[in-house]
Simulated scan of single mutants.
Amino acid sequence: MLLAGEDPIAVERAAQVLAEGGLVGLPTETVYGLGARADRDEAVAAIFTLKGRPSDHPLIVHLAEPGDAAGFAADWPPVAQRLAEAFWPGPLTLIVPRRPERAAAAAAGQGSIGLRCPAHPVARALLRAARERGVPGVAAPSANRFGRISPTRAEHVVEEFGDTLLVLDGGACPVGIESAIVDCTRGHPVLLRPGQLGRERLEAAAGEALREPDDEAPRASGTLEAHYAPRARLRLMPAPMLNTALQVLGPGEVKLALYSRTVRLPPGSRLRHKPMPLQADAAAHDLFADLREIDALGVDLIWVEEPPPDPAWDGVRDRLRRAAAAS
């Protein structure tokens, strides 16, 4: 059931569904989420069931206001405070120690929990309306089948789950890839997943360098090696390799699509080609929608030009590498 996110009555209806333990599709500035009240483990369990997601893979809890983090966090490290002051509301998830009595299912049983205060006006309106009904936060992974391409438009959510799920339509997500995730549980900040917010900006706000993940890092949403995959097999290649591969490709190959910034199809090629935006923010915004469009062509293979090494492309590169690993 698709409802207009700018309609206050629709928002109130969705908030009531959450309060009663049901599921709602909601827009955020990153991707659309599949939400349930985070303080009821049975409600959160319905997310895992509908997505086909392993119950040991934690979810991110979305908050109406930054101050609501106190309801889930057993401790609030100074670096978490600095990052929240800089980027909340916004596309940043902070991993902090969890209150033992709160949100065990959403945290997949870990002693830490991922918290985010989204900036999307529809998400904020829904979270506030839900809070008025006693919902302290909403656990919301991306609203797609587990491991598949994340949704950035309301119709993507309907394609995934049908029209029985209540989905608030907030338009196309302005960022287009999931939030950056910073672990703040171990005395030094660790970047677990890149996003729109670049490392340089995060480090400036944190007041220290972000370390790389290690074996001690908590499990976090969207950090599995294989993720974000289309149905077609996706191969990520540097531009020179991709050019060579296209030149030697047999003329009968028609089940392949190209997604590239600088590489073009050879003259007379019958392959499908979807241009990748030249700028990192635009590429992030379009990435998942473009992959869904290409996948809908029914091709067997998608050849993708590897993004440039510029740090601005870290989020896009991360998603493409995980999509290729899933293939």
Rank of each mutant, 00 (worst) to 15 (best):
L3T: 08
A4C: 06
P8W: 07
E12C: 03
Q16T: 10
V17N: 01
V24S: 13
P27V: 06
P27D: 07
T28Q: 03
T28M: 12
V31L: 04
L34F: 15
R37C: 11
A38R: 03
D39W: 00
A46N: 14
I47V: 11
S55E: 10
S55R: 04
D56L: 02
L59C: 14
L59S: 06
L63Y: 01
A64V: 07
E65C: 01
P66S: 02
D68W: 11
F72E: 10
A74M: 13
P89F: 01
P89R: 06
P91S: 14
L94K: 08
L94G: 05
I95Y: 07
R102I: 13
A105S: 00
A108F: 00
G109W: 05
C117S: 13
V122Y: 07
A123Y: 14
A123E: 12
L127M: 06
R128S: 11
R128D: 12
E132D: 15
E132F: 04
G134V: 12
G134A: 03
P136S: 08
A140P: 07
P141M: 03
P141G: 09
S142D: 05
S142Q: 02
A143S: 01
A143V: 00
R145T: 07
F146T: 10
R148T: 08
R148P: 14
S150Y: 02
A154D: 10
A154W: 07
E155K: 04
E155V: 14
H156F: 04
H156R: 09
E160R: 01
E160C: 03
G162P: 06
D163H: 11
T164L: 10
L168M: 08
L168S: 09
D169W: 08
C173K: 09
G176V: 02
I177Y: 05
E178P: 02
S179G: 09
V182M: 09
V182N: 12
D183K: 11
T185G: 08
L192F: 08
G195R: 09
G198L: 07
E200I: 10
A204D: 05
A206H: 08
A206P: 01
G207K: 01
G222P: 11
T223V: 13
E225W: 10
P230E: 00
L234D: 03
L236F: 12
N243K: 15
L246T: 12
Q247D: 07
V248C: 03
L249I: 03
L249Q: 02
G252P: 00
A257D: 06
R261H: 14
R264E: 05
G268I: 05
G268D: 04
L271P: 11
P275G: 09
P277V: 08
A280I: 02
A289C: 08
I294L: 12
I294Y: 01
A296F: 11
G298K: 09
I302C: 07
V304P: 04
E305L: 03
P307S: 14
D310N: 14
D310C: 14
D310R: 15
G315S: 01
V316A: 13
D318C: 09
R322P: 04
A326Y: 06
S327I: 01
